[in-house]
């Protein structure tokens, strides 16, 4: 097994993908560990101890990560994904599978999130690693450092809100005027 592919390595990779500095929280279940240190920000995240805290990560940085499982995994598989609102399910960020005996791995990953990834938005990144020892799963709540206006997506969303809200307000006002003119509620 390539040790770098452990679930919480994947989880931390997920952190890298969805944000770089922001609040994040992790919940870990199973015999495994995962942690990451953001070199520039000096942020350390240990999935086993961070609990429900929200983790804020920088938009770009380099993360030194480590991950391990309790004993030789044998045949393994796993994935890490971004949780979407129901019923949209999830978007897979990474997956892995194979056979091996290594129980730990570590490495560094440099990332730079594009501008369209909004800052200040709470993402939940979940992951799962399954091997001959059982299942290790967890989730981390993260957000990218910065404010909502750091991303052009916010401006687009506001323009679309106004573009639909204006005509809707006009329609509703027209209805209200008609209702008032006819005697509110009518039909008697």
């Amino acid at each position: 097994m390539r040790p770098t592919r452990w679930i919480f390595v994947g989880l931390l990779f997920g952190l890298l993908v969805v944000g770089s500095s922001g609040p994040a929280a992790a919940q870990l279940g199973g015999e495994c560990t995962a942690s990451g240190v953001w070199q520039n920000k000096g942020l350390t995240v240990d999935a086993a101890t961070i609990g429900n805290d929200l983790v804020t990560v920088p938009r770009k940085d380099t993360v030194d990560w480590t991950g391990s499982v309790g004993s030789a995994p044998g045949t393994y598989r796993g994935s890490v994904w971004l949780e979407l609102p129901p019923p949209f399910g999830k978007v897979e960020i990474d997956s892995w599978h194979g056979t091996g005996t290594n129980t730990a791995n570590s490495g560094s990953k440099t990332y730079s999130l594009p501008k369209f990834v909004p800052a200040g938005v709470e993402f939940t990144v979940s992951g799962e690693h399954i091997d001959s020892n059982g299942v290790c799963s967890g989730s981390v709540r993260v957000q990218v450092e910065g404010g909502p206006f750091d991303s052009p997506v916010t401006y687009a969303a506001l323009v679309l809100t106004i573009a639909t809200g204006g005509p809707l307000a006009a329609l509703l006002l027209g209805m209200a005027k008609a209702a008032i003119a006819a005697g509110f509620g009518g039909a008697s």
Binding site: P85, P148, V153, A157, L158, T161, T164, G165, P167, L171
Partner: peptide
């Protein structure tokens, strides 16, 4: 009117996510 209401409230929901009021999921 119903479709506009759907779209408007949809964009309001997106705004609430972008401003950190609601979580993405």
């Amino acid at each position: 009117t119903a479709v506009l209401g759907f779209l408007f409230f949809g964009f309001v929901a997106i705004d609430l996510v972008l401003f950190g009021v609601l979580a993405l999921n």
